[in-house]
């Protein structure tokens, strides 16, 4: 999508549009009011003409997990070049910010230096899979409970992974577990297990591909073996690798 299209999309998603659970405040005072001394404040720094800022706004509006978490935050959007940016943001938060977009978190009083919030990363990504775990972490620091339904989703995904028949299905299930639980402190062991499982499955897939390369002698046998790998690792990069090797084989 061109830069201009991103900008148009960003304009459509300006503060004030309460899509998908995010109500944007227009000033720090407004955000503090919305925080009502309970909610952490999520501050988004963006600027005109920044395509990644536009993509982030789009993803914030479009991700179901963020939609579920959004009401637990007060949201403030600051644009580079405005008075709010020059008078408040730069002296208070500017040291942590390299460019746009940047998403950082303040305590409910709007303070940046609260030790409870220390160590939280300033997010510079538009990827919801990286944003959601940090939102969850922030909520836990703000002493908000982990939703029961996320716990259930993690348990269900682990169950699915244990019952899966093919490596591709296992990887998909473990990825679901990561989506549901990543960032919730209570789920950390399960998340470690998910990451390790995905890594191990993909490494096994790589080893199987190498075995075929080394040991299978005839073209027909190779084709059959690669197709089996492609099917059983469907949805992973191992399946893409198998597809590439099939494409390189001489035509029948």
């Amino acid at each position: 999508m061109s830069g201009r299209a991103f900008l148009l999309l960003a304009l459509l998603l300006l503060p004030g549009v309460a899509e998908a659970g995010i109500e944007w405040s227009k000033s720090l005072d407004g955000a503090k009011k919305a925080a009502a001394e309970k909610k952490p404040i999520a501050v988004l720094l963006r600027q005109k003409g920044c395509p990644l800022s536009a993509e982030l706004l789009k993803n914030l509006a479009g991700d179901d997990r963020i939609a579920a978490l959004a009401p637990s935050f007060a949201w403030l959007s600051v644009s580079v070049g405005t008075d709010e940016y020059k008078d408040w943001f730069v002296p208070t938060c500017g040291g942590n910010v390299e460019g746009t977009p940047s998403l950082l978190f303040l305590n409910p009083k709007g303070e940046n230096a609260d030790p409870e919030y220390a160590g939280l990363p300033t997010l510079s990504t538009a990827d919801p899979d990286e944003i959601v775990p940090v939102l969850r972490e922030v909520l836990q620091r703000a002493k908000q409970e982990e939703p029961a339904k996320d716990k259930e989703a993690v348990a269900a995904a682990i169950g699915k992974a244990n019952a899966a028949r093919t490596p591709g299905e296992k990887v998909a299930a473990w990825r679901e577990a990561l989506r549901a639980g990543d960032g919730w402190r209570g789920e950390e062991p399960a998340m470690e297990e998910a990451r390790a499982a995905i890594r191990a499955i993909l490494q096994e897939g790589g080893a199987e591909m190498l075995r075929i390369l080394r040991e299978v002698r005839d073209v027909g046998g190779q084709r059959k073996a690669y197709e089996a790998v492609r099917e059983s690792y469907a949805g992973t990069s191992i399946a893409d690798w198998a597809a590439d090797e099939i494409a390189r084989l001489p035509k029948k």
Binding site: Q47, G49, C50, P51, L52, S53, E55, V80, G81, V97, E98, G99, T100, P101, S102, S124, A126
Partner: peptide
């Protein structure tokens, strides 16, 4: 990866 826009 998409790099950030720089600040003025």
């Amino acid at each position: 990866a998409v790099t950030l826009s720089k600040l003025p």
